[in-house]
Write a protein that binds this DNA or RNA. Sequence first.
DNA 1: ACAGCAGATTAAGAAATTGTTACGGGTTTA
DNA 2: TAAACCCGTAACAATTTCTTAATCTGCTGT
Lengths: 225, 225
Amino acid sequence: MPKETLLVVDDEEDLLELIGYNLKKEGYTVFVCDNGKEGIELAARHKPDLILLDVMMPGMNGIDVCREIKQNSELKHIPIVFLTAKMDEKFEVTGLDLGADDYLSKPISTSKLKSRIKAVLRRYRNTDRPDSVLHVHDLMIDRERYVVIRGEEELHLPKKEFELLYYLASRKGKVLDRQTLLNEVWGNNVYVIDRTVDVHIRKIREKLGDELVETVKGVGYRFRQ
Amino acid sequence: MPKETLLVVDDEEDLLELIGYNLKKEGYTVFVCDNGKEGIELAARHKPDLILLDVMMPGMNGIDVCREIKQNSELKHIPIVFLTAKMDEKFEVTGLDLGADDYLSKPISTSKLKSRIKAVLRRYRNTDRPDSVLHVHDLMIDRERYVVIRGEEELHLPKKEFELLYYLASRKGKVLDRQTLLNEVWGNNVYVIDRTVDVHIRKIREKLGDELVETVKGVGYRFRQ
DNA sequence: ACAGCAGATTAAGAAATTGTTACGGGTTTA
DNA sequence: TAAACCCGTAACAATTTCTTAATCTGCTGT
């Protein structure tokens, strides 16, 4: 089993090299770059299992990179660990609210770095990432083409409806409450009232029938098992 | 819809009180204690959703508490966040290797504390716990899917009935009085007449048969052993 | 047999939750 | 630039669930 792939984004060349070297020695596959824009590209291309992200960078800073990644449904599941020179607490709160998974202040010892990375990866390891094409009931939900196929017909749902359907289907049988759905589909940092979920559910039912998505009153919604 | 339960273990009384107060204000159910031994007992009794654990304590220290909890299969899934006065890096590595989930150094601001707790809980919320499905007699009570399965048939109970059944079943054989049931299922600060329990019990019996839940006159109810 | 409990049962109104529709702002498309 | 579309919100209808209160049943000890 190949060890995980990591992406390190930091504008300090020395540090970048040091971190890269150490993590490679640990057996990880490591991509590095020194700016946010390239970081996003590399993330999209290689889909790393974890991203180490410097907060302070010229140009696009770490916060922005994080925000962008968390908005990309292909990448949002990737855990992000922030690196920062000063322990700026206010930022830390922002970062964690954005969906960051951990936080390291420089200077970082190698052992600490490795330990943290291991911890974060361990948390995520058993979280099975859903397939990009789901087959459920008579549906095929293709996330790559953004299309739902039922028999001969192709259905094109708007983005939010599609994402919601996809998320529900990927957790078939499990009851998901509105807040979870909002966090997972809309993102943790958006402020939207939870009744919005209801409206989207209704639209999904309108297009795919009432049977697919079940309501569990007082709890949430569930894709029919 | 009881919010999460937290356990805080710290020998500094002032801090304990401060943290307890703030977390209660957030809506969590909070248990506190000032030593490791009691911490383990409380953890076993209340099965909190998260434990805040001071590292340095007289007697049993945080590391030992953590180790013991991680060895108990009933408790090992509970995320642990360490608190420590000094940023002792060597310890931090140990803690994370032990399976701690986060790390906070004192002094802690309230906003940071809340933000971290939220982040950790969010990570765990959707992680299926091994005991989320109870097998009792010929029943399978699946909390994740919110469904009771008996043989081929799937039963869908309303929320309160389901929660009550789940709670009784999870304490199979034990007699639980009405007040306990109200506290655990309805929540600590809900004002409801205890006869309400009877009505829900009746509905459960109506759906699942009279044998499952036994009445112990003058005491309470018991899920049949 | 008869009070005196404690729980069982039932029904009805209250409360809570969800379904449904419509609208305005914003964006993309023709 | 208009038309079409998507999205979030609000409002009200529809439905389910919860709680209470009233009544019934069965047991206990006298």
